[in-house]
């Protein structure tokens, strides 16, 4: 679902805008902003990350070649800056995801959020939870009375897993819509709003989640 659905959504009619909006850097920037602003971890942008990695690698080789064949140092430094900016975006994107995984690992592990992680992220999450479980087990849980030793529950009396930190999905996010969306239903209320293209709104994350996934709105 990563990039395919995003590219299909309606871009502004302005040719130049839409041309810019389709570069991978622009898509990566959008993914980075969304990931940063969303309370929970979003779907990993597999194809986009793969493409960005390839472009970064290609550019690294180009810059190296430039160094060898005596290209004007100014040009080289500009290519290097562009490279640095793209690398920053990619690294920051991956890091925010790791932070979220660390924060919500038990929640991620026991829900279908698990499928939003990349293969490497799943490995990381598994190792994280294993380590954390072992650590808590050794330092605290094993010394507690029977019935209080679960890592997920306060005690056996708890019906739900009440010791698992979960992201707050009812929080509010700042977002911008790319096209106009008429009579958009805000989840639990009967209210509807018309979202005008390019205007800034503060809405409940829960209610706009599908629009983020379909790429119709961006978090800012």
């Amino acid at each position: 679902m990563a990039s395919g659905s995003e590219e299909g959504s309606g871009f502004p009619a302005d040719d130049y805008e839409s041309l810019i909006a389709t570069t991978d850097v622009e898509l990566l920037k959008r993914a980075w902003r969304n990931e940063k602003a969303a309370p929970e971890i979003l779907h990993f942008q597999t194809a986009l990350v793969q493409r960005s990695r390839e472009q970064i690698q290609l550019m690294e080789e180009t810059v190296e070649e430039f160094g060898e064949n005596g290209t004007d140092p100014l040009t080289v430094s500009l290519y290097q800056m562009d490279l640095d900016r793209t690398q920053f975006l990619l690294r920051s994107y991956l890091r925010i995801r790791l932070q979220k995984i660390e924060k919500y690992m038990f929640h991620i592990l026991k829900t279908d959020v698990w499928s939003r992680l990349s293969e490497q992220e799943q490995k990381f999450a598994k190792r994280c939870t294993d380590d954390m479980e072992r650590h808590l087990e050794q330092s605290v849980l094993s010394r507690l009375p029977d019935g209080y030793q679960s890592i997920l529950k306060q005690s056996v009396a708890s019906e739900e897993d009440d010791m698992v930190p979960e992201p707050r999905l009812d929080t509010f996010v700042f977002c911008k819509s790319k096209g106009s969306i008429e009579a958009f239903q805000l989840d639990d209320s009967k209210e509807v709003v018309d979202l005008v293209a390019d205007d800034l709104y503060i809405l409940r994350y829960n209610s706009v989640k599908p629009l983020i996934e379909s790429g119709q709105i961006d978090l800012v």
Partner: peptide, 18 residues
Amino acid sequence: THAVKLKNLSAMEANIVR
């Protein structure tokens, strides 16, 4: 309040009040 509209608010302004 379920929705707040901030037409023409800029990036820096939004980030500060967020």
